[in-house]
């Protein structure tokens, strides 16, 4: 029983991380029809940013709670900045180029970020230990053991998801973003600053990567330069399954993927090594069956 709960907790944690990554993908696609594949490596960048912030905070003797805040803020900011720079410097100039060029470019940007971390971060090729900043231990509830840190992280992740969702759907900025996503040209004529809105949207999307990166580091206590790639693939597939451009779809897709992984580990433990393989097969099958995603994908072509 307790192991089931452990799986559940793990699954929820994973799902939250995947969901955050997927939200980023879906925002980028929604706003500019771009699959920004560097998103996973932006996450890694954010995680490493958080790591550096942790070192700084420890060196300055911050209390733990302050260090925690510092780490998360640093991760979010690092990701947001690099995401914005990529948007302004690389994505926007290529917006009329063939989609293959854009996709390849973002993949290469991701590779470049990953390699820079591997080459230039001290001891970059090896996994880095992430500080323990959350209360360890947990509590028992009818035989199930709940980790404090896990619960806090899941709560934080979900809170951030709601924050992003609120920004997109309830603020004027979000309205501008949605307008640009709907029809960039018209939005421009309505007085919306296209470039600025796109860059901010990309920054917000990248922030989700930063949060995901921080959550990952805090939960698993370890990060490494290559962690972004598989997260990008999972996040991308989660976003497609949910319907590109649809934020709720991305969230559902993320939890769905984590659910699949958890199901494999829980019910088919002999195949644990194949959990990603199986989950990806299911996802690809889902896409083949429902190509526009479980919820709707936006966009159609004028004939």
């Amino acid at each position: 029983m307790s192991s089931i709960a452990q799986y559940l907790l793990n699954g929820l944690m994973q799902g939250t991380i995947y969901g955050l990554v997927a939200i980023g993908f879906t925002i980028f696609f929604g706003v500019m029809n771009v699959i920004k594949f560097s998103h996973g490596d932006v996450l890694t960048f954010g995680a490493f940013g958080g790591l550096v912030a942790a070192w700084v905070a420890t060196a300055l003797g911050f209390p733990i709670w302050l260090e925690l805040v510092f780490v998360i803020v640093a991760a979010v900011m690092a990701s947001a900045v690099i995401g914005a720079v990529i948007a302004q410097g690389l994505v926007l100039p290529l917006k009329d180029a063939p989609p293959l060029n854009m996709l390849l470019m973002t993949m290469m940007v991701g590779t470049a970020i990953r390699e820079c971390i591997r080459l230039f971060f001290p001891n970059g090729t090896n996994p880095q230990k992430f500080p323990e900043l959350l209360p360890s231990g947990g509590f028992d509830l009818s035989g199930i053991y709940f980790r404090y840190d896990g619960l806090i992280l899941i709560a934080a992740g979900i809170a951030f998801i709601f924050l992003v969702q609120w920004i997109i759907n309830r603020t004027r900025l979000g309205l501008a973003i949605r307008a640009v996503a709907e029809d960039g040209e018209t939005a421009r004529t309505m007085g919306i600053n296209f470039t600025l809105t796109v860059v901010i949207a990309f920054a917000i999307g990248s922030m989700t990567a930063g949060v995901a990166g921080a959550l990952y580091g805090l939960y698993y206590s370890e990060i490494n330069y290559g962690m972004g790639l598989i997260l990008a693939i999972i996040g991308f597939s989660a976003a497609i399954v949910g319907g590109l451009g649809n934020i709720w779809g991305a969230i559902i897709g993320g939890y769905l993927f984590a659910g699949l992984q958890t199901a494999v580990v829980a019910f088919l433990p002999a195949l644990s090594d194949y959990k990603n393989v199986i989950a990806l097969i299911v996802v690809v099958a889902l896409i083949a069956w429902r190509p526009t995603g479980l919820l709707a994908e936006r966009g159609s072509e004028r004939v």
């Binding site: 699959i35 996709l103 598989i230 693939i233 597939s237 393989v277 896409i287 190509p291």
Partner: peptide, 28 residues
């Protein structure tokens, strides 16, 4: 099937996932 879809990113994801799948499968 996904590769035949009009939107290129389905083919992108499917082939991407397949590549990762292939690698993962062989390693395991």
């Amino acid at each position: 099937l996904p590769v035949l879809r009009t939107r290129g990113h389905y083919a992108a994801l499917t082939t991407l996932a397949f590549g990762v799948l292939f690698n993962g499968f062989l390693e395991a």
